[in-house]
Design a protein around this nucleic acid. Structure first.
Length: 901
RNA sequence: GGGCGAUUAGCUCAGUUGGUUAGAGCGCUACUAUCACAAAGUAGAGGUCACAGGUUCGAGUCCUGUAUCGCCCACCA
C-alpha cells in the first residue's frame, strides 16, 4: 500500500471543530434560497425547522443531544436534496429556572432579589444571561448543528417581546384573555401561581384524619368527616353528604360547627359525595381544593382563604394565624383532640401535588390571575390534527393529544415573577380602569390620566414559546422570512412536551397566523440509562454528552442516538453502544483509507471497454437497493432503520466482501484495477452521502480527501455532475429503479458467498491451518459457468490452492478420501487425507442430510397445501426453487455418504 | 378510574404495506499480528419472538383476552 497521510484510526479531535467552523464560514448553514439575497425565488419550497429553544440556563444533556441530532439529520438530508433549508436556533428565557439561578447567585453575595428591587434584579439577570447564556448554544454547535446562527433568537429579545405583547393584546381584545380570582395552583416557596401542567403528583405515605363535625345547637349529634389536610378545616364552608344517604339525610339544611373556630356552616346534599369513603360525608373547602371549589360555586357557598402566599395561616384562621400550614395541621389536630372532636387517624397513601420546579407541595389557592379561555383555541387545534393538516409521528400520540385538548382547562398565564414578559396591562391610579396595549401607553385609555401602573406579573414562559415558530420569523410584521419560511415543515421534540409546547404552538399558530405552524410533529423518546432508569444526579447514572463526545467523538454519539430506537420509544443508552458506533466511524475511515491508497496506485485512464466483474455488479446492485430503502424509510420518518441499513451494507457487504475482492482485482492492474477503483470510489462516495446526515464529521472529512485525490487523479472519477464544494451541500444520492440485470448478479454473488462461507466453516471446524492453501474440487452442475468465472475469487477468499482447484459440472469418480460438503446444490470436496476420519465424516454428513431432508419435507408439505394455490405465484415459485435446490443437495449428500464406504 | 407503550439471543435493542430457516451491537467460544481497520478479521454457540385464543394458505408482524413492567392523563376527601 502506498503512503497516504491519513492516520490509521479516525481521529475526530481537531477535525470536528475545524469542519464546523469551515461550514459556518462558508455560509452552508444558511438557506440556499434566502429572501434577502438577490435572485430569491419565492416559488421554491423550503424545509424549515424551529429549534426547541433550550433554557438559557441550561447545560447540554442527552435530551438536547437527541433533538439536535435528529433535527440536524432532517436538515442535512433536505439540504442535500436541494431544498432551501432553514433551521432557526435560539434559547428560552425560562422564567422560573433563570430567576432561581440568579437568586442563588445573589444569595452567595448575601443578597435577595427584594433587596435589589425589580429593576436592578432584571439588570443583573440580563448580565447573567450575557455571561452564561451562550453556553448551551456553544455546546449545541459541538454536535454539528447546522443552524443559521445569524437568525438566532431569544424569547426575551425585543422582537419576540413585541410579538408576545401583540399576542396578548389580540387575545384580550377578542375576549380570550380574562383576569379574575380563581382557584389556582400556588407555589408557596416560589410565591407564584403555576399552571396545571407544572404540577406533578407523587404517591406518598400520609394520614387520613377522622373527626366530628358537631351539629349546631345539639350536644351529641355529629357527622364524621375524614380529611388528609386538617388545616383546611379552617376554611370549610359546608359539609356535604350524599342526598340518598339515610344516615345523614336528616341533617341536610341544618348547620354544623367548624371545629375550634365554631363557625356555623350548612350541611348540603350533593351526589359528588362517595358514601363509601371515610365517614361518608365530605367537608367542603372551596378556597383550597379544586373539587370543593366546584361544589362551592354550584351551591353558592362562601369561599374562604386561610393561607397567605407563603402558605402560612392568615387572619381567617383565628388563633392559628401566622402558623405554617404543617404546624397548623399539628396544632389544630391536638386542639381538636383535646376538644373531643377526634375520632381516629390512620395511615393513608396520598397523591401529593408537587411543584415540577422546586418539588415543594403545591397549595390550591384562590388568587387573582390572568387566564386564557382555551376552549376556542383548543377546538381549532383539535381539528387540524383530526383532518390531517398536522400529522403526528408516531401516530399514537395523536390520541394523547386529543385526550388532553378535549379535557383542557383554562390556562393560567400570569406568574408572580420578575424575569419574563411583563403583562401589557396598566391600571389607572385615577379611575382604576385597565389599559391593555401593545406599546407602553402614555395615558389611561379611559380617563386620560397619566397615573398608570403596569401589572406586576409576568407571563408563563410557555406563552412566548407558543409563538416561537412565527415570532422568530418576524411576526407580527409581515416579513419576507415569515412569508417564505412559514409555516415551518417539521416540529421535532420529545413527547414529554407535547402539551407544554407543541399543543400551544398549534393553538397560537392557528389563532395568530391562521395557519398551522408546521405540517409534521415528530416526537422522539426519552433517554434513560442502561437499565431503563431515568438519569439523575442523585442516582449517579448521568451520561454527559460532552464527555462522550470528548471520548468517542460526536459522530459516534449522534449515530447512537439516531439509530438506537424507534420513533417515540424511549432509549436506554450505554457508552458501550457509543463505542460500537465509534468503531463504525473508524470502519468508514479505514475503508476510505483503502480507497484512497488504491486510487493512488491506479492507472489514470482505462484503455479498453468497461468490463465489470460479478463483484462490481453485485455491490452496485446492492447499493441501489439500499438507496431505495433509505429513501423510502426517510419518507416515513424511519431514520433509525435507515441508518441501520446503511451501517449493515457498509460493513457487512462493502467492507467485508467488496473491499476484500477489490484487493484481488487491483492486483490484476490495468483496466481491471481502474474499474475496481472506480467502483470503490463510487460506492464509497454514495455511502458518504447517505451517512452524512447521521455522521457529518467523518463523512465530510473523508469526502474532502476523496474529492481532492480524485480530482488530481482523473476526470473519469468525478460523480455525475462533478464534485460539489462540500459534502454538506452535495447532492443526495439519487435512487433509481433496477435495470433488469440486478437480480441475477445478486443471486450469482450470493452463491459465491455461500460456497466461500461453507469452505471456511469446514476449515475452521476441522482445524485446518488458517491461511494454508488446500486443494479442492467444486462440482457445480449448471452453476459451473458462474463459479468458474469466480474461480480466483473463491480460491483467494476460501484459501484454496488455485493450482489444485478443479471445477467441473460433475465427476464420475469422486475424490476420496476427502472432506465433502454440499451447499446450494454445489458439491465441494477437500481431498485432505490426513484430516479425514471416515466415521466422523459419516456422522457430520448424516447430520447435514437430516437437516436438508427436514427442509425438503417442510417445503413439500407446504407446496402440497393451499399455499400453492392461494399465495402469490412469485412467492410459491421461490419456495419451489428452494425445494429443488434442497433435493439436489440431498441427493449429493447421499452420494457422498455412500462414497465414504 | 381512563389511556399509551414495552415484553424478541446472557445484556441493550431493531424488525411499518403478513411471505414461511427471526437480525444487529455488546458479551461468550475457537482461531488469526495477513498488507484499510486488533476500535480488526474468520468461524461458531445462543431465540417455542410474555401467555392464551382467533383471522389467514401463511402471524414476531393483524384482531381479542390475560399477565408483568414502565409511562401519561384524571385527582375520593
Amino acid at each position: 500500500m502506498s503512503k497516504i497521510n491519513l492516520p490509521k484510526t479516525y481521529d475526530y479531535k481537531g477535525i470536528e471543530e475545524r469542519l464546523y467552523r469551515w461550514w459556518e464560514e462558508k455560509g452552508f448553514f444558511k438557506p440556499s434560497n434566502d429572501p434577502p439575497q438577490p435572485g430569491f425565488d419565492h416559488s421554491k419550497k423550503p424545509f424549515v425547522i424551529s429549534i426547541p429553544p433550550p433554557n438559557v440556563t441550561g447545560e447540554l444533556h442527552l435530551g438536547h443531544a437527541m433533538f439536535v441530532s435528529m433535527e440536524d439529520l432532517m436538515i442535512r438530508y433536505h439540504r442535500m436534496k436541494g431544498m432551501p433549508t432553514l433551521w432557526v436556533p435560539g434559547s428560552d428565557h425560562a422564567g422560573i429556572a433563570t430567576q432561581l439561578q440568579v437568586e442563588k447567585m445573589l444569595a452567595g453575595e448575601g443578597l435577595t432579589r427584594e433587596q435589589l428591587g425589580r429593576e436592578e434584579f432584571i439588570r443583573r439577570t440580563w448580565a447573567w444571561k450575557e455571561k452564561y447564556g451562550g453556553v448551551i448554544n456553544r455546546q449545541i454547535r459541538r454536535l454539528g448543528a447546522s443552524c443559521d446562527w445569524d437568525r438566532e433568537r431569544f424569547t426575551l429579545d425585543a422582537g419576540l417581546s413585541r410579538a408576545v405583547r401583540e399576542a396578548f393584546v389580540r387575545l384580550y381584545r377578542k375576549g380570550l384573555i380574562y383576569r379574575g380570582p380563581r382557584l389556582i395552583n400556588w407555589s408557596p416557596g416560589l410565591r407564584t401561581a403555576v399552571s396545571d401542567l407544572e404540577v406533578e403528583y407523587s404517591e406518598e405515605p400520609g394520614r387520613l384524619y377522622y373527626f366530628k363535625y358537631r351539629l349546631a345547637g345539639s350536644a351529641d349529634e355529629f357527622i364524621p368527616v375524614a380529611t388528609t389536610r386538617p388545616e383546611t378545616i379552617l376554611g370549610d364552608t359546608a359539609v356535604a353528604v350524599h342526598p340518598e344517604d339515610e344516615r345523614y339525610r336528616q341533617y341536610v339544611g341544618r348547620r354544623v360547627l367548624v371545629p375550634i373556630l365554631n363557625r356555623a356552616i350548612p350541611v348540603i346534599a350533593d351526589e359528588y359525595v362517595d358514601r363509601q369513603f371515610g365517614g361518608g360525608a365530605l367537608k367542603i373547602t372551596p378556597g383550597h381544593d379544586p373539587n370543593d371549589y366546584q361544589i362551592g360555586v354550584q351551591h353558592g357557598l362562601e369561599i374562604i382563604s386561610v393561607l397567605d402566599e407563603a402558605a402560612r395561616v392568615n387572619h381567617n384562621g383565628g388563633i392559628y394565624a401566622g402558623l405554617d400550614r404543617f404546624e397548623c395541621r399539628k396544632k389544630l389536630w391536638e386542639d381538636m383532640r383535646a376538644a373531643g372532636l377526634v375520632i381516629k387517624e390512620q395511615p393513608y397513601t396520598l397523591n401529593v401535588p408537587r411543584s415540577q420546579r422546586g418539588g415543594e407541595i403545591i397549595e390550591p389557592m384562590i388568587s387573582t390571575q390572568w387566564f386564557v379561555s382555551i376552549q376556542p383555541l383548543a377546538q381549532a387545534a383539535l381539528e387540524v390534527v383530526r383532518d390531517g393538516r398536522i400529522r403526528i409521528v408516531p401516530e399514537r400520540f395523536s390520541k394523547v393529544y386529543y385526550n388532553w385538548l378535549e379535557n383542557i382547562q383554562d390556562w393560567c398565564i400570569s406568574r408572580q415573577l420578575w424575569w419574563g414578559h411583563r403583562i401589557p396591562v396598566w391600571y389607572c391610579g385615577e379611575c382604576g380602569e385597565m389599559t391593555v396595549a401593545s406599546d407602553d401607553p402614555a395615558a389611561c385609555a379611559v380617563c386620560g390620566s397619566s397615573k398608570l401602573e403596569q401589572d406586576a406579573d409576568v407571563l408563563d414562559t410557555w406563552f412566548s414559546s407558543g409563538l416561537w415558530p412565527f415570532s422568530t420569523l418576524g411576526w407580527p410584521d409581515d416579513t419576507p422570512d415569515l412569508r417564505y419560511f412559514y409555516p415551518t415543515s417539521v416540529l421535532e421534540t420529545g413527547y414529554d412536551i407535547l402539551f407544554f409546547w407543541v399543543a400551544r404552538m398549534i393553538m397560537f399558530g392557528l389563532e395568530f397566523t391562521g395557519k398551522v405552524p408546521f405540517h409534521t410533529v415528530y416526537l422522539h423518546g426519552l433517554i434513560r440509562d442502561e437499565v431503563g432508569q431515568k438519569m439523575s444526579k442523585s442516582k449517579g447514572n448521568v451520561i454527559d454528552p460532552l464527555v462522550v463526545m470528548d471520548e468517542l467523538g460526536t459522530d459516534a454519539l449522534r449515530f447512537t442516538l439516531l439509530v438506537g430506537s424507534a420513533p417515540g420509544n424511549d432509549m436506554n443508552l450505554s457508552t458501550k453502544k457509543v463505542e460500537a458506533n465509534r468503531n463504525f466511524a473508524n470502519k468508514v475511515w479505514n475503508v476510505g483509507r483503502f480507497a484512497l491508497a488504491s486510487l493512488a496506485q491506479s492507472p489514470k485512464q482505462p484503455e479498453g471497454e468497461v468490463d465489470w466483474t460479478l463483484a462490481d455488479s453485485w455491490i452496485w446492485a446492492r447499493l441501489q437497493q439500499l438507496v431505495r430503502h433509505v429513501e423510502r424509510l426517510f419518507a416515513v420518518h424511519q431514520y433509525g432503520e435507515a441508518g441501520r441499513q446503511i451501517y449493515d451494507f457498509f460493513w457487512a457487504e462493502f467492507a467485508d466482501w467488496y473491499v476484500e475482492i477489490a484487493k484481488l482485482q487491483l492486483a490484476q492492474g490495468g483496466d481491471r484495477a481502474f474499474y475496481t477503483v472506480y467502483t470503490l470510489i463510487r460506492v464509497l462516495d454514495a455511502c458518504l452521502r447517505l451517512l452524512h446526515p447521521f455522521t457529518p464529521f467523518v463523512t465530510e472529512e473523508l469526502w474532502g480527501h476523496l474529492k481532492r485525490a480524485c480530482q488530481q487523479h482523473s476526470e473519469r472519477l468525478s460523480p455525475q455532475g462533478g464534485w460539489e464544494e462540500a459534502l454538506i451541500v452535495a447532492r443526495w444520492q439519487p435512487s433509481r429503479a433496477d435495470e433488469g440485470w440486478e437480480a441475477q448478479k445478486i443471486a450469482d454473488f450470493t452463491l459465491v458467498q455461500e460456497v466461500v462461507r461453507a469452505i471456511r466453516n469446514l476449515r475452521a471446524e476441522k482445524k485446518i491451518k488458517p491461511g494454508s492453501r488446500i486443494p479442492a474440487y467444486l462440482l457445480c452442475g449448471e452453476r459451473l459457468g458462474v463459479l468458474e468465472s469466480q474461480r480466483d475469487t473463491i480460491a483467494a477468499l476460501a484459501h484454496l490452492d488455485a493450482n489444485r482447484l478443479r471445477l467441473a459440472a460433475s465427476l464420475d469418480e469422486k475424490p476420496s478420501p476427502a472432506l465433502s460438503l454440499v451447499v446450494a446444490g454445489v458439491e465441494i470436496y477437500l481431498p485432505l487425507a490426513n484430516v479425514v476420519d471416515r466415521e466422523t465424516e459419516r456422522v457430520r454428513l448424516k447430520g447435514e442430510l437430516t437437516a436438508v431432508e427436514a427442509q425438503i419435507q417442510r417445503l413439500e408439505s407446504l407446496l402440497d397445501s393451499e399455499f400453492a394455490i392461494k399465495a402469490p405465484p412469485a412467492v410459491v415459485e421461490k419456495e419451489r426453487q428452494k425445494l429443488a435446490i434442497f433435493r439436489q443437495s440431498a441427493e449429493k449428500l447421499r452420494q457422498q455418504l455412500s462414497g465414504l464406504r
